[in-house]
Design a protein around this nucleic acid. Structure first.
Lengths: 359, 359
DNA sequence: CTGTTAGCGCTTTCAA
DNA sequence: TTGAAAGCGCTAACAG
């Protein structure tokens, strides 16, 4: 069962291991006849170069780390697919890690990835300062930030135009006649959440509407806690340092208030799912009782009753772009953050004019 | 920027590199005072052992391959999370690859993983014979089959009781009064699909109902083609060797037939989504015009109108179990396929008695 | 209790 | 046009 190595190939072909290496990598001229002998030996012996040994010799492992919050989040899932497709095409492997937005898990993952000598890293950082991340950057490992930014990290970032998407969404609601529009968001540390907040604000201000702080509600964005299936199945999440109420709690309070908003803009798909559960529980009909618009499209969104109006993000392309950018960095090319990718307002039927003229 | 190695640590601590190695790995006794010196040196220099070098020396990389069909499929996504949670806890990294049910992609992925000297493999095989997979097995790499089996491969398999789940689903429909119950499935090569077929058959036979071959319809299970979002975003799929019509085509034919079935049992979540789109297009109401029951729960299923009746699979646990089994194999323990995990019939509201007495 | 040293399998000067 | 040999950073005998 002893694995066969380039030495075996060399012997079989009657050449040195240097020559074997060179024909495999095409890294210097080899007489056609010699090359053929080596090639034959390779196929006869079914030789596969050992990437670990090569990695040690070249200090390049062809492995890329992909660190995201949770692969079960359809947003990241689509992104991950974009990344993997792009990387595998370049014969790079992608190692993925989940952080659950937990800085401790983030540190641990990065530690392991660093030890593994990854050639590059694509990360959707938690947003909390992360020593391992900065260390990786200092060590010269190419890094691209995905969707969000990490404090203190100098690295190109691939994301969407969050403020603009939020702005459009809220403007759409305002045009429909809404005056009191809530914003449901997740962790403050996550840059997308605050950028979307800014878009919400700008739209209100431009319309001369008051920006009431109590219209901004925060909830744990990690899963729709009222959803039976994942909840009962989910592993206990890390949550270190993060304590936020569930969507259900938060909306229960907001939407039973006498001066409740007539519309809500939601920052993520998981929060949206939670909100939908909350509506059901509170007996609120959408859009009759409350209009809803959210970030992230979902493949079931058009089938929903009502079909969901959303701000669509180019998820797959986000991952693809991040991977392409990383490849450029690995090749040593100079890169800069590309302009934010455009989002798209998809109007379906979860928003309607407010019944009582806008709350 | 020259990376620091165990040699640097040794020098700094005034010991040999062997001692450094031993304190790091706790692999032989080191005097407390010496150990402390080494530890200090490590932290002063911020030394991180190079896993690649270690991998070369020990021929153990602490990397596991996870090969699935498509990470965008929520089934695999949950499984992958179970795998990653389990592996990361053991300080193993997981490299994931998508095959798109394409044997060519499968081969390519495995080839790369083999070169990378993975310590183990968890795979949901396409079901087509796969040379690289057998080669990996021959080379003694621990493998566990996930959800399905690959022809000719001797490896423990972690899956659910597919036939039983299908049987229960169809029995439920029969109890409701249905007589003509269709089965919508994906690729024949995928073992789960045929096992579920067997369950469907058994339920019909036991009830004395005819098993009509034209009630079994096959469609491309890879994505809901009528769903606008993923379709427009999706990368061109591989599809080598697989040609199957879309759900829309297949159901268009089946359900406009005069003697159309009054109920349908669907083998996967992606096919279900496609069916839901098809219903919409055909103007069929569920469950009034047709009852639907499917494999795989989804977090939005309870919110759907009608809430979907499903056979739930323990997805997360499937991944977790596979990973645990793999760890045992890596430790050299003897293992066998565990009994299939139980599925659960979740009755919601997408099935009702047939209007005309069961077609 | 600790150091020396021979690899692991490959790449890459340097020589020829 | 090709070979010899020195590493890459670590582990694991073997010595002492």
């Amino acid at each position: 069962m002893t694995r066969i190595s380039s030495k075996d190939v060399a012997e079989h072909a009657g050449v040195s291991i240097a020559t074997v290496s060179h024909v495999i990598n095409g890294t210097r001229y080899v007489r056609a006849e010699t090359r053929q002998r080596v090639l034959d030996a390779i196929s006869v012996l079914d030789y596969r170069p050992n990437a670990v040994a090569r990695g040690l010799a070249t200090s390049s492992t062809r492995e890329i780390g992909l660190v995201i919050s949770d692969i079960r989040n359809p947003f990241f899932t689509a992104v991950a697919r974009g990344v993997e497709d792009e990387l595998i095409a370049q014969r790079y492997n992608t190692i993925f890690c989940n952080t659950d937005e937990d800085p401790v898990r983030e540190e641990g993952n990065l530690h392991l990835l660093a030890a593994q000598q990854i050639d590059g890293l694509i990360i959707a950082p938690t947003g909390e300062p992360c020593e391992s991340l900065l260390a990786l950057a200092r060590a010269g490992v190419p890094i691209v930030q995905l969707d969000r930014t990490s404090p203190g990290l100098e690295a190109p970032m691939v994301g969407v135009n969050n403020a603009e998407g939020a702005y459009q969404a809220v403007r759409y609601l305002i045009a429909l006649g809404h005056r009191r529009i809530a914003y449901l968001m997740g962790f403050e540390a996550v840059s997308t959440q605050t950028e979307r907040l800014a878009g919400w604000q700008r739209a209100l201000q431009e319309a001369g509407l008051p920006v009431e702080e109590n219209l901004v509600v925060r909830a744990d964005p990690r899963f729709a806690e009222s959803a039976p299936a994942p909840a009962s199945e989910a592993a206990p999440a890390g949550m270190a340092g993060h304590v936020l109420p569930s969507v259900r709690e938060v909306l229960g309070e907001l939407l039973t208030h006498p001066a409740r908003p007539s519309a809500i803009f939601i920052a993520t798909n998981q929060l949206t799912l939670g909100a939908l559960y909350a509506f059901e529980e509170l007996g609120l009909r959408c859009p009759e009782d409350i209009s809803l618009i959210s970030f992230d499209d979902q493949d079931w969104a058009p089938l929903f009753r009502p079909p969901l109006t959303v701000v669509r993000q180019p998820t797959y392309r986000l991952g693809q772009t991040a991977a392409q950018l990383l490849m450029q960095m690995i090749r040593g090319e100079a890169v800069a953050s590309p302009p934010p990718l455009a989002v798209e307002l998809i109007v379906r039927a979860s928003c309607s004019p407010p019944v009582n003229g806008g709350g």
